[in-house]
């Protein structure tokens, strides 16, 4: 199943997310938008960490840990916003 979401991060940027679900797990995911992340390549690490995961509140901590471990800073985006967008995309998935 494929799902998309457009989510305005509160006090942040516009997040556009698309994902592929397989047996309720994330098979692939793209986190897109006009936010900032330093270093930029951090986005691939976060996306890779989300692959294989079930849709659960724990994803917020997973994103935060990935960011902390890799020294990733986000502006106009945070882990909660990514999770919100994931939930919307899952709701839209077909």
């Amino acid at each position: 199943m494929l799902g998309k979401a457009v989510y305005k991060v509160p006090n942040g940027k516009l997040l556009k997310l698309s994902l592929e679900l397989e047996e309720n797990k994330i098979k692939s995911i793209r986190v897109m938008g006009d936010f900032f992340m330093h270093p930029e390549a951090g986005i691939e690490l976060i996306e890779a960490a989300l692959v294989g995961q079930e849709i659960d509140e724990k994803l917020v901590g997973l994103i935060d840990n990935t960011a902390r471990e890799n020294g990733i800073e986000m502006f106009g985006l945070d882990s909660k916003a990514v999770f919100e967008a994931i939930k919307i995309a899952v709701g839209n998935a077909k």
Binding site: K16, R30, G33, D34, I43
Partner: peptide, 9 residues
């Protein structure tokens, strides 16, 4: 377009 944006989007 920004580094994180989808070109088609």
């Amino acid at each position: 377009i920004g580094y994180f944006q989808g070109i088609g989007e």
